[in-house]
Amino acid sequence: MALIASADRRRFLRDAIRVTSAVTLGTGVGFLAGQRGRPQDLRWQLDPDKCVGCGNCATKCVLDESAVKAVQCFDMCGYCDICTGYLATDYQQVDTAAENQLCPTGALVRRLIEEQAGQRFYEYTIDTPLCIGCGVCVKGCALMNGSLYLQVMHDRCVNCNECAIAVSCPSRAFDRLPGETPYRLKRQALALLQQKAAGPGQDAARAFLEQVYQP
């Protein structure tokens, strides 16, 4: 009887070691496999060349104030006096009066930068906290130059698993971009930036280019 008991103990220990080794090996392999197959950090973004400016970005975002905001590509902007992104279509005067502005929240800011022989040139910037992402300025600007467009701002976006705006987007403009380059320029803006970055002394343009998604 003592022999049998001793044999059982050895077998038990051997089996225990085998099981422990198998579990350890499986866990290790699984961990390594998991590390390799771990999904990238992806962020929601919209493709401005597909965006129709429907207005859903303003109303569908789960945040009270949408994470989508208008941005300006200054290289595409004409610095015009009569900006169709700034002025209401039925404007009475070319000035900054609220009734003459297209933006419902006054988030597009106009600043005189130059006057030459009676022709005035203005810079248009976005007052981001005021912008609700409705895209009215985007549509107005698209009538002429299309330098204004929408982007998901990642200092605000909570990166929902299922983005409520993406679900309702009528032109399927939303997709996920790598976390390290979560912004997508308009195709024309990207081409201009790449052209500029290729020139000498354009470190700022090159640094900016590294932060944007380049398909």
Partner: peptide
């Protein structure tokens, strides 16, 4: 159709 902000439709 006039209010189409997509890249190909601009201007």
């Amino acid at each position: 159709a006039l209010v189409d902000a997509r890249g190909d439709a601009v201007g």
